[in-house]
Simulated scan of single mutants.
Amino acid sequence: MRARLIYNPTSGHETLRENVGDILNILEKAGYEASAFRTTPEEDSAMHEARRVAEEGFDLIIAAGGDGTINEVVNGISPLEKRPEIAIIPAGTTNDFARALKIPRDDVVEAAKVILKKQKLPIDIGQAGDKYFMNIAGGGSMTELTYEVPSAYKSILGYLAYLLKGAELLPKNSPIDMHIEYDDGVFDGKATLFLIGLTNSIGGMEQIAPDSVIGDGTFSLIIVKETNIRDLVHLIALVINGGRHVDNPKVIYTKTKKLSVKANNDSKIMINLDGEYGGDAPMDLVNLHNHLTIYANIDSMPDKSIPENVNIKKESD
């Protein structure tokens, strides 16, 4: 079996570059003939390499870096009919996807060792036009702060950078007039933001979609209706305090397999895909059920986050 490590040398204060040899040794121990590719400043470098090795018939791709690197790998292989399995080694800022899969986020070598456990999970992927996302999509004035945080701040301050920028933007927050269609209904009016998630971890917080089940074929949909600063601060407090925001009258929280969003009047909605700008509405977003298979630290994942019909043996069983 062949495995290709695709790593971003600038992620994680260059810890990836220093540990490539150890990671390749772990892959060899797992039974793979392993090689590595160092991403370049060229646009979509990781995506192009993932597509190339997938078409060559590699069995496994390891995406090592931040959420952006992982998103590129997902976009490289998701359009293909024959897709390799994937693993991730987190070395970025929020590492939402790794957080949900309980993969170590503070030691890249320990993250690689998850592959030795041979525990794999089928996961859903979101499709938005000709782009793909593995964790979150959204729109609204509050989601736009991710575009305004300088990369240097992300590297130094991590998620704190987003919180600081968010606090700065709160007084400027303006709800957007939008039309959203989802499986069980329609929302038409002004909203501060909408989010659809594939895991329970969004922006470093694990309570935004408290009952999310990985790979169950649905998105967790959150629509925050028109709010003022006091409402937003209150909702954030409810998120932190056990995910109780889902019962607030300012919030629509449900599950859906697809979503269509467009702006009303002269409004503009920039769509955020995994923290990056993904185009403007109108846009259709669809859940691709069990589209990829990924290595996960399933022993550490709560049973409620895994579909009941997925029979995966834990080491503790």
Rank of each mutant, 00 (worst) to 15 (best):
F187H: 07
P307W: 05
P90Q: 12
S35V: 12
I62Q: 11
A161P: 00
D266E: 06
P171W: 01
K225N: 05
L163M: 11
D106N: 10
I271G: 02
I70H: 14
K225Y: 09
L193V: 05
M47Q: 11
E148W: 07
I123Y: 02
I252D: 01
N287V: 00
R52A: 12
S220A: 02
A98S: 13
I61F: 11
H291W: 14
K102P: 15
S151C: 14
A91I: 09
G203Y: 04
E110I: 01
D59E: 14
T15S: 02
I61N: 07
P150R: 13
P175H: 06
D22K: 15
A98V: 08
I26N: 01
N95Q: 11
V224I: 15
G126Y: 00
L259A: 04
L60D: 11
P9Y: 01
I26K: 01
G12P: 01
R38F: 11
D211Y: 01
N265M: 04
D317G: 08
V224S: 08
I23W: 07
D274W: 02
N75T: 07
V224L: 10
A3G: 09
A237V: 04
V149E: 07
L288D: 01
N241K: 10
K118S: 03
A91H: 04
V74D: 05
L170Q: 00
I223Q: 09
E206G: 10
A209W: 01
G68I: 06
P9N: 06
D247Q: 09
V286T: 13
T15D: 06
M178I: 10
S305P: 02
P175F: 05
P122D: 14
K154V: 05
E315W: 13
A34N: 09
G278H: 11
N75I: 15
L238S: 05
V233G: 08
D177T: 01
I306C: 04
A191S: 13
K29H: 05
I214F: 00
K118M: 04
D188V: 13
G279Y: 15
E168Q: 12
M178C: 11
I136N: 03
A50L: 10
H234T: 11
A137C: 12
D124M: 04
K82C: 04
K82R: 14
H179R: 11
A167P: 00
E33V: 08
